[in-house]
Nucleic acid binder design. Structure first.
Lengths: 118, 118
DNA sequence: CTGTATCCCATACGATACTG
DNA sequence: CAGTATCGTATGGGATACAG
């Protein structure tokens, strides 16, 4: 006998046991929500993101941006064919459906900081 | 010269570069939102959580519950002094401030599943 | 019933150098 | 400017056995 089979949710080839897991699988990790937060209201170049997030490494920023692009949340636009390159990142329409959630995540973080300051 | 110092946010001895990071530091990881989601509307015993989450190991469930307790989101109540033990987990008042956020995380996961089904 | 102890592994992430 | 390549490490989490 197998263990009780849980109805799994699927997205982009991955399986999740809960709807919250699915969301966290897409926006989880150390940096994705930070990137999305910065892209919430403006399009940014790679270097602008780096300056906004000075403690993420180039490699990690690059990997996370690619993951967000693969999941359809972010679109990468290239404006030059020869160096120096100009590349801009922005939210897709699907990515924009996350706006209220990212904002809520940011707001709760702010709330905790203020709470702790009391 | 140091690199540009970012104004860090602190909570429970940990530092975060962004308010979203702080939230994710508290509810991030593979299982915390799932636990919180199940505790949203009811108090549950350890074994009840296990049955709701058949693919988490005992060790991990235990560690995550302890982390949630340490962060003040969950309270653990013990009702017996000798085996068989009865232990109940529920949200604290602080944990309840996460209710709308956890619900939004769940809702977006549901939304994605339905979206993908089209 | 409610966990710990022990061991192990995959993967996420960091540091640094280098390239188109 | 916008990344990739390479290497190293830390930690999160799984499997299983055992304990109060």
């Amino acid at each position: 006998m197998e263990q009780t089979a849980l109805k799994m949710l699927r997205y982009k080839g991955k399986e999740y046991p809960c709807c919250t897991s699915l969301t966290m699988g897409i926006i989880g990790g150390k940096w994705k929500t930070v990137i999305l937060y910065h892209l919430l209201h403006e399009t940014l170049r790679y270097n602008e993101l780096r300056k906004l997030m000075p403690n993420v490494t180039e490699r990690t920023l690059s990997l996370q941006l690619k993951a967000l692009e693969d999941d359809g949340l972010v679109i990468r636009k290239v404006y030059t064919s020869k160096p120096p390159l100009k590349v801009e990142y922005s939210l897709t329409d699907f990515g924009k459906t996350l706006t209220p959630l990212i904002q809520s995540i940011a707001d709760w973080g702010d709330f905790v900081v203020k709470q702790a300051a009391q």
